[in-house]
């Protein structure tokens, strides 16, 4: 196979495994999938895992990483297994819960349904990168003060979605915040305290 052929084949295989057109899966688009009757669920296809490898290179929490990974490696796998950043959780691996939410180039994405390859060249922020030199981010402080969690398994995702929302919309109404977080399930249903935490974070960040 020539280089060109290989590249074409790789691209084809990537796009087969790309679950949403246009690159990384944004949670905003997926929110609708969780609300019955508003959008068709976009489920991953069932093709065999792609065993070919590629080099991915991305900045995660300010550090540049380069690795050779199977093309089928998801961003969540890359973060959790290759970089050992296990703060990003997997609740469904099917873009239906938001536990795996990370920030890619300023957008909140479901890392379980984004290929590591798709994040090549990107700036990725995970829960581990939020605190600066041990000083917690105001969102983290707000989630602590208002107990915006119970078991904590959804919390990384809730916080990363909140981060993107507040970056874009520093002063949301409660209803705007609710909508923005609708792609992040909390099975403990700590929603009231999560909402309080988000609104408190917004106040702290604007102060």
């Amino acid at each position: 196979m020539s280089d060109e052929e290989r590249e074409r084949a790789d691209k084809a295989s990537v796009s087969r495994r790309a679950f949403l057109k246009g690159g990384a899966a944004a949670t905003g688009a997926l929110t609708a999938a969780l609300i019955p009757g508003t959008a068709e669920a976009q489920l991953p296809d069932a093709t065999e895992p792609d065993t070919r490898h590629s080099t991915v290179e991305m900045t995660v929490n300010g550090r540049l990483y380069r690795a050779d990974v199977p093309n089928s490696t998801t961003l969540a796998q890359f973060l959790r297994e290759d970089l050992k950043l296990t703060g990003t959780k997997l609740g469904c691996d099917r873009m239906q819960c938001g536990a795996c939410t990370v920030v890619v180039n300023g957008r909140n994405v479901y890392s379980c349904t984004t290929l590591a390859l798709q994040a090549t060249g990107a700036e990725v922020l995970t829960i581990e990168g939020l605190a600066k030199d041990d000083a917690l981010h105001p969102i983290q402080q707000a989630f602590i003060e208002h107990s915006g969690f119970q078991c904590g398994f959804c919390t990384s995702g809730q916080i990363m979605t909140t981060k993107v929302m507040l970056d874009r919309m520093p002063n949301p109404t409660e209803d705007q915040a609710r909508l923005a977080l609708a792609g992040n399930l909390c099975r403990c249903s700590a929603y009231k305290k999560i909402l309080e935490s988000v609104m408190a974070a917004s106040r702290m960040m604007r102060a």
């Binding site: 296990t86 990003t88 581990e128 983290q140 003060e145």
Partner: peptide, 20 residues
């Protein structure tokens, strides 16, 4: 606040699946 809140909001809390 919960006494383990920092672990839970920083991703440091190790759940079973995080064990390697």
């Amino acid at each position: 606040p919960n006494i383990d809140a920092v672990e839970r909001v920083t991703g440091r809390a190790k759940y079973t699946g995080d064990i390697d």
